[in-house]
Design a binder for these strands. Sequence first.
DNA 1: CGCGCAATTGATTGATGTCAATTGGAGTGG
DNA 2: CCACTCCAATTGACATCAATCAATTGCGCG
Lengths: 241, 241
Amino acid sequence: MTEFEPLLRMLSHRDVLSDDERELVSGLKRRVVRVPKGGALVATHSRPGESCLVFQGFTAREVFLKSGERQITAIHVPGDFVDLHALTLKTMDHSVVALSDCVAAFVPHHELLRVIDKSPHLGRLFWLSTVIDAAIQRAWIAGIGRRSSAEHLGHLVCELYCRLEAVGLTDGQSFRFPITQPELADILGLSLVHVNRTLQDLRRRGLIVWKGGTLTVPDLEGLAAMADFDPTYLNLVVEPR
Amino acid sequence: MTEFEPLLRMLSHRDVLSDDERELVSGLKRRVVRVPKGGALVATHSRPGESCLVFQGFTAREVFLKSGERQITAIHVPGDFVDLHALTLKTMDHSVVALSDCVAAFVPHHELLRVIDKSPHLGRLFWLSTVIDAAIQRAWIAGIGRRSSAEHLGHLVCELYCRLEAVGLTDGQSFRFPITQPELADILGLSLVHVNRTLQDLRRRGLIVWKGGTLTVPDLEGLAAMADFDPTYLNLVVEPR
DNA sequence: CGCGCAATTGATTGATGTCAATTGGAGTGG
DNA sequence: CCACTCCAATTGACATCAATCAATTGCGCG
């Protein structure tokens, strides 16, 4: 059991890994770092020489506009290789921050290149993970652009439930959701007040229960139907890639 | 001069290509297809065995919601390797359609894998292109979520100007923009009527001129300042990747 | 000429944002 | 242990932006 367990678990949901590949991943040199809630894992405009993998805690990509407003463009959960982007992107156009206390592993780019070179198949799976991030972002675009606030919020909850289940972080119908409403507002692109009212709407309809940092979905089917959620885009399906 | 000229041009904005790499790309086996305005290049739920590169015309990724509403989640211009996603994603969660008459090259996946195997560097540049698509999507999320409609529209125009300039498709301050207002509404996540009013707003302020399928930006600096546009995320900068 | 659709406009409705105030819980220092 | 502070959560009143409904104009094409 290494820091890479959640990552291996996530990858195993998408394709079969050979023992060699597991060892290649587990053997990646890394620097393990605790980041407190609110801290930055990767800063805007920086040029990281390492990519960062979160294996405990929630993180988010954030952008600030000149008005001072913030938009969160992605949420990452344990097992997500959060910063593969920097490997090819070189310069960060946004920052990655800890939404809760986190533990992250920083892997030097040359280590990644070495592993990809040895196993092009692993390379494709890493590529896949950035492509799925993009698919999630497309779902967010559709959510902000065309869904009602209740549908959008419901869709997000479904998405997180599926992603967390894949890494074993759900407990029946519940999962830890260490997010505040102001943060949720920056995720959904809504005002704080409206987020609060939308939450109450879903609660009143019995679709979610959210108390003390734990979110419960009593009727995932019903929530998915209401939010028009189809998990295909998350690609949590094993096949040769 | 092959169908891959715009692609090579785009890649050359991001890193130096060797002659061997140019030949590898130019030698890719492909099937060239004309797609009329409105036609589909890649269909939702399909499992393409080829990836598709557009070298003439505009295309868009689109998603339909159960309400029947459409959201466009990305626009692609000539030179964009539109469907590299399918190489690792396997099943499409959205479709790609032609916004104008298009000419596209379909390249079999095994061909791509062969080229990537021969040149891991080209592989990384292909990866990069999907990562930049994601960066553009993040900019769209911030645009829909937190910008005013005028800023959002202005930002989009700046983005397209920069991307088209990179492939030589601008003519001074103008470029062909074969899009209708209803389409623009699905791009921006706004209603048709509001798009029209937002356009008039920008016109009245002298920031854009749009007539007969040609869009002119008399004052790119001014538009960029208004829209809080920073081209960093487009990564149109040569460096070793 | 007449059809279909893009573009435009006005009037109205509805959703969401803003402002302002209150409540409640967690942590801090006396 | 108690004030005190900070901030999340909640609520109400109101303002504003954007959607909707409905008509009209204008253009390209058969």
